[in-house]
């Protein structure tokens, strides 16, 4: 019991703030419809990004795994904030904690109004959730796009 508590408490001391780089290669918006609402036209955003981060300092003796996620943060046409996870990944070993990814969004990226036309430019950030063997879950940010990226007009598909 005491050992478990000691290990859990040690997480509060073993704090690291890794820094990573995140940049958007491209963002495109296409009209389409979802499987759930096949008759409703809505816009989908497709994001290509480059990501590099060294997360090894986050791996200490009480680190079970890291849950990494890339999220878009933007204010929509109604003036309220939206946070959308567009990509995630689980890192389970220290050897895999140096991240170099050229990727695209893994999850559907859409807006409640079904269009990004009036949405304000979005910030993108790389966040992590450190999940311990025992104790508290901690969160942090490991990278952020240097400036907000605006949504382009939807492209027409023939």
């Amino acid at each position: 019991m005491a050992m478990l508590a000691a290990i859990a408490l040690s997480s509060f001391v073993l704090i690291a703030t890794p820094k990573g780089e995140l940049s958007l290669a491209s963002i495109k918006v296409f009209p389409g419809s979802s499987r759930r609402l096949p008759n409703v036209k809505q816009d989908f955003a497709f994001v290509n990004f480059n990501l590099s981060a060294d997360l090894t300092p986050l791996f200490h003796w009480n680190t079970k795994q890291l849950f990494l996620y890339l999220q878009a943060e933007y204010v929509d046409s109604k003036g309220v904030p939206n946070d959308v996870v567009i990509w995630d990944s689980i890192v389970r070993r220290k050897e895999d904690a140096v991240i170099n990814v050229m990727g695209r969004n893994k999850y559907v990226f859409r807006d409640l109004s079904r269009s990004f036309r009036k949405a304000q430019p979005a910030n993108y950030s790389l966040r992590y959730n450190l999940m311990p063997y025992v104790g508290v879950l901690t969160y942090g940010e490991a990278g952020r796009s240097s400036e907000p990226v605006s949504f382009p007009d939807p492209e027409t598909v023939s």
Binding site: V80, V84, Y107
Partner: peptide, 10 residues
């Protein structure tokens, strides 16, 4: 389960 999207509504 983990939160994937947070949408604000007035």
């Amino acid at each position: 389960h983990r939160i994937l999207e947070v949408r604000g509504v007035n």
